[in-house]
Design a protein around this nucleic acid. Structure first.
Lengths: 332, 332
DNA sequence: TTGAAAGCGCTACCAA
DNA sequence: TTGGTAGCGCTTTCAA
């Protein structure tokens, strides 16, 4: 059995209330120095650990933060969770996970469960699905202490916006500056996922004729009109002299890196290639793959910062984070 | 403010005890059918959610499971966490995270904190560091409901052993069967990390002359004796006619895939290459990289299963999981 | 300088 | 078929 304040009190023949007051350094406690020391010592000796649930019950903050995250999503959500745990621990918070995937009802029930456990606040991470935007807006409207990370910006809440559109626009700019003349985009169609949508949008702002430069991929890796990757290289990339491919993510980029090489195109000499996500393998591809880093460390640091502000009842705000372009040989 | 049993009771002019008894379907409750229905309806209408902390305080299980995990570790820990969350949710459990990294004190304090929150049990995941083996053994000796996943097997606890040694031994066997004559191993030195140690050990059991077949890498990617990778290919791989390289992980394998290709060696014709971890990029390397899958789905399923048994006070046991070799072109 | 009392929301037993 | 009582461990106010 865990040690309680009462046991410490009994041990010393005093009241448990005094013990509590002393251990929490309460200003309403005027115990003598000697007695204080005695209490501290006994607590340490007995290995006293306050019962968090009892404390929460009296209305104190739980120091638990909920994390609503789509952990099945692409890698950044897991990365963020890992770093967030560290960050939260620094401020004395625990993380409780509420997973969801694909169904908005799961988000709702996960969120409710987190509240039942008395979490002080909740991070919403990587709710990337645009179909739930309105529902989320409605459901969370009156909730307190919600910090939204990489998800649809929610009115009235603290949000961190990872500006993928700007990042992709910047890639185009860099490619243009380094002399690329015919820059195209490869990625999945973006009606559903905000982060995919943003990438294509960011790419597009640079071109009046963006439509013909954007080639959508279907789930099997083919071009959306049914064309195989090989065919695409021979019938589109080569004849049209495409000299730069901006690709939605590193995994897809790695795939195309290889396809292009197999067709005799040299990277970056003939075609520059860029990816996104800064996956662990990008430094060791051949050639090293230029990519975009989300700056998860900054994101999680900021997320905790915003959570603190929220807990202090400060006014909600949206902060933009500019992902970092990591230049590597594939786009020299 | 959250709705309480008392509010429901007041609303209906009855006692809150009755409400509690009815809502929990207690056998000691003999309320009339009509009243029961009334209580259920009112609870639903008011959106009643029981306060978990109060419930825990009365001694009921918290339905919270702690996860002690090194989230900074290589990918499998994050994967396992994500899947474990799903699995736990199926059985009505929440997960609370206690991170640690590199310091055993962190494990201890994280563990204590989890206990303070009244977790029903704790998963210990990816404590890979052999230096802590003894400390862990001692510290956890008398703890209850600990399920150890992919970590040093702990006496007296439920453990899941991912048999990497067997998997690496099996790779060697497969390579031999398919005619490879001179199989070598590349990986980091294994004094500290159990999982690295296991790989080399599994490789070694097949050879009386294992020592000369194992080449340790230092942190910078060089061979431990200071030789550069390029040099190694020219001075060792080619002259010694090494025709298979078993490599500790996929990322390192990808690196060597490229090094070998740059030196004119064909894969798999001249040299077969295998990795480990089943990282997302292995299907799209050139050629596709043979690898080892930890079978995280089975691991997490089993982990929950063992946790349930532990909660039922069944006898601790250790279950082995055999990782799956995924054959791809790199080792045909 | 200290202790008694009340209360957080809930469960469970017992008496009516 | 129901309500009273007690108690989980803690915090805080108030009285001594």
């Amino acid at each position: 059995m865990a040690v309680t304040v009462k046991q410490i009190a009994d041990e010393l023949g005093i009241s448990f209330q005094l013990v509590s007051a002393v251990l929490n350094n309460k200003n309403y406690c005027r115990a003598s120095k000697a007695k204080k020391q005695l209490i501290f010592d006994t607590a340490a000796r007995l290995g006293y650990r306050p019962n968090v649930n009892a404390r929460i019950l009296t209305g104190k903050p739980s120091k638990i933060l909920g994390v609503l995250a789509d952990l099945q999503a692409a890698s950044p959500a897991s990365k963020i969770l890992a770093m967030l745990e560290r960050e939260a621990a620094e401020y004395g918070f625990r993380l409780m996970i509420g997973g969801f995937h694909d169904r908005f009802e799961d988000i709702v029930s996960s969120y409710r469960l987190l509240l039942q456990h008395g979490v002080d606040g909740v991070f919403l991470i990587a709710l990337d699905d645009l179909r739930y935007r309105q529902e989320a807006e409605d459901f969370f409207r009156n909730e307190k202490n919600l910090v939204v990370v990489r998800a649809p910006l929610l009115e009235g809440h603290f949000c961190i916006e990872v500006d993928l559109a700007a990042a992709f626009s910047r890639i185009v700019h860099i490619l243009q500056t380094s002399g690329r003349k015919n820059i195209h985009y490869l990625g999945q169609d973006s009606n559903t996922y905000q982060s995919l949508h943003d990438r294509a949008t960011g790419f597009a702002v640079n071109f009046p004729d963006a439509a013909r430069r954007i080639h959508y991929l279907d789930d099997s890796g083919k071009i959306a009109d049914g064309m195989e990757a090989d065919e695409f290289v021979e019938k589109v990339v080569k004849p049209e002299k495409i000299d730069a491919l901006v690709i939605q993510d590193d995994l897809t980029a790695l795939y195309w890196l290889n396809i292009l090489a197999q067709h005799g195109l040299r990277i970056p000499d003939d075609v520059a290639v860029t990816g996104c996500n800064n996956e662990n393998f990008t430094p060791v591809t051949v050639p090293g793959l230029a990519t975009i880093d989300f700056r998860e460390a900054e994101i999680t640091h900021l997320a905790m910062e915003l959570m603190q502000r929220s807990l202090k009842n400060m006014e909600p705000e949206t902060v933009k984070i500019m992902p970092e372009f990591i230049r590597r040989i594939s786009c020299q």
